[in-house]
Design a binder for these strands. Structure first.
Lengths: 349, 349
DNA sequence: AGACCGTATGTAAACGCTAACCTATCGTTT
DNA sequence: AAACGATAGGTTAGCGTTTACATACGGTCT
């Protein structure tokens, strides 16, 4: 018997009824102990805790989910899993959930919008208690509808500007972009190009805003020809940079709106035999692991991605506890990390 | 009413009883339809399916889990989430599971062994139906014990050599390493160093075996000084390469046992002003995204990581269906991808 | 002393689903 | 014509929890 208990493993795992019998109390009392709810005398509590430990009991999540309506499972939707950007956020989310004894149910949406919506609905009743939507495809009104129907979720890194009442976590896009552009200006650059993400995305719009503000406060003129839209991927960055470098008056610096684009830009420069940073400075955004392994290392705006994930969980747990979320929108600080891909422009005095 | 149905969202989602009532059948029939089990006439099936669609019904997973003993949830343990290596496997797993209408419950073990074990136990009753262990810390005997107690799991990329009866999926380490070394030999290299992973890991041992076989069949002599053990991380690769390059007779090529190590080796070479591949050829293993963004691009052994994940799921589903797993151990092919980090040695004629 | 409250614990009814068991109908075989 | 198997579909007992409700036992206050 002892050995069986000690392994903690048994074919049909112990039920609350068995534990109750072993401890000489009712199932309700065991439930109260393991959930720290209701009245239990210290003495009884100790006894039950001992038995629980001894037999390695933990509640069947399905049963709890059915009975109490909470499963301890949190759905996380994410467009893709493997890009560093997402996987770091997911890592942060998972760790934070783990600390709360909750588990993450991962749902890649693979850019299929329909799938995302129905998924969410499906997810939210009977499977998970709540959800974390990373860079969701849903429109603001769709999210509103879901909220009104009692779905509880937090949006991490909203793609579009969404309804005020939806809790969100994001990075300080504008401030980060401002720092990046200011850095380039301080180095002496005046022809600074940007490679943006898709138009309409918050990340694009906000970063553009920060960039323009930096230009303005330095008295530099914005130049439409130096702004090219892309898609946040390496290939896109390469193409955009190629286009920029072919300009009659090419830029001396490029601020790419994420690291992938920046890496693409580095490749484009390399292909034309230009040296980075001597002939072209490049700044990225995100500070994913890639930024540190390219040559030269990429100067980039650091986003606390894991922290963003953790913060999402934090909002979510408060949402579950029905606390009024005073801070419905959290914006986490970004920070410019200066590395080897930026330098003063060569042409300047 | 119509509008409510069409949104598919309702406060308290529909139960099987309601759907049964709407369709004018019993709950059993609805259950049979949605689970494709038992006898249902085509006509009845159609009716029920229509109602199900109309009201957006899908079974409450907790209830199903409790009643039928299967939750449709698969636990996946993984040491860490964000390294590209793992996140690509996870992506493969998640997609494959999605296609089976199953969901993935992610559990990072963070290298905490205790945590992994207890996690597994906890996971496997009441939460998930089965598990996929990626690079598990467990010893063979621990895994055996779990198996004997009815836990169902598949090991993906076993860390150590484990019990025969545990189903596993892995890459063809040995063959891949053989290809890598052969490639270097064919280029004319004779002093080929390797930077390995931790000793005792299957990945290390098998790759070493393949490497040695390649040397042997080319009649080259193995040289103990040219084998240095490391930890699969960039920093380790840099240190190991530094050590190798300081040798009286340094190698003309380095075969690093993963891309991280290879990148570290590239950095070490760069730091000493050595040019890759002119003065030093470098080969990696894994072919993660990083391999394509370093300069020069890394010649490396491609592992079909996403496919490895999918295959894990495939074994798992067969395990669940109680099919005898004829192929208990699947080894997926690896392939050398020649890129810019390898070239003939300079010193040779 | 009776009323009342706070504490402690037990009893049992859900929760939504599946599956075992039952009944009924309709060929088809003997 | 009886027997049987295949098909169709209803009834209902759990699955393991939680929690509302009931009960019981001191104290404390009036």
């Amino acid at each position: 018997m002892t050995s069986q208990k000690l392994t903690g493993v048994r074919d049909g795992r112990y039920t609350i009824r068995e534990i109750a019998a072993f401890a000489g109390v009712s199932t309700a009392t065991v439930s109260r102990v393991v959930n720290s709810s209701g009245y239990v005398s210290p003495e009884t509590r100790r006894t039950v805790e001992r038995v629980v430990r001894e037999y390695g009991y933990s509640a069947n999540r399905s049963a709890r989910g059915l009975s109490a309506g909470r499963t301890g499972l949190v759905g996380v939707t994410v467009p893709l899993i493997h890009p560093a950007y997402f996987s770091v956020i997911i890592a942060g989310v998972t760790e934070a959930l783990y600390e709360q004894d909750m588990r993450i149910v991962l749902c890649p949406t693979l850019h299929e919008h329909d799938r995302e919506v129905s998924l969410l609905e499906r997810l939210m009743h009977g499977t998970t208690d709540c959800a974390l939507l990373v860079l969701p495809e849903e429109s603001s009104s769709e999210l509103r509808t879901l909220m009104q129907h009692g779905f509880r979720f937090v949006v991490v890194d909203p793609r579009m500007r969404i309804d005020e009442r939806v809790p969100t976590v994001s990075a300080a896009h504008s401030a980060g972009a401002n720092q990046a552009t200011t850095h380039l200006l301080e180095l002496g650059h005046r022809r600074i190009a940007v490679i943006t993400g898709p138009e309409g995305w918050m990340a694009t719009d906000e970063r553009l805003r920060g960039h323009r503000a930096a230009l303005a406060s330095a008295g530099a003129l914005p130049n439409g020809a130096l702004v090219v839209e892309s898609n946040f991927e390496v290939e896109g960055g390469r193409a955009a940079a190629a286009q920029l470098l072919d300009l009659a008056e090419p830029p001396t610096a490029i601020f790419a709106f994420n690291d992938q684009l920046a890496i693409g830009a580095m490749q484009a420069a390399l292909e034309r035999g230009m040296r980075v940073p001597e002939e072209l400075s490049i700044v990225g955004f995100d500070d994913t692991a890639e930024a540190q392994i390219v040559t030269p290392r990429l100067t980039t705006v650091h986003q606390p991605l894991a922290e963003i994930g953790r913060m999402g969980v934090s909002l979510l747990t408060r949402l579950l506890e029905n606390q009024r979320l005073e801070a419905l929108h959290v914006e986490l600080e970004t920070k410019l990390v200066k590395r080897g891909s930026t330098a003063p422009p060569r042409v300047l005095a």
